[in-house]
């Protein structure tokens, strides 16, 4: 069983490389019993979305005003 700390590292790496099937299975098993890590996963995905949007907003926010 992965520890929560290990899960946070794997989830961060999951933003940078494709996780192996074995890693993903171990993560899913962990999420079944750990709400905190499930939240952490959603937060990592949200951070990525926010960064994409931030860069996009900087270059496109005039669309709203025109």
């Amino acid at each position: 069983m992965l520890t929560c700390k290990e899960v946070t590292h794997l989830l961060s790496e999951g933003q940078d490389r494709k996780l192996t099937v074995a890693e993903r299975v171990r993560l899913e098993m962990h999420f079944l019993v750990c709400e905190g890590c499930g939240n952490f996963r959603k937060q990592m995905d949200f951070l990525r979305a926010a960064c994409r949007r931030y860069v996009g907003e900087r270059s496109r926010d005039d669309d709203r005003n025109d």
Binding site: K5, C34, C37, N39
Partner: peptide, 13 residues
């Protein structure tokens, strides 16, 4: 044991 401390784990957003 490297699991979240009670009350310190990531919250639902």
């Amino acid at each position: 044991n490297a699991h979240w401390n009670p009350g310190k784990g990531p919250k639902a957003w």
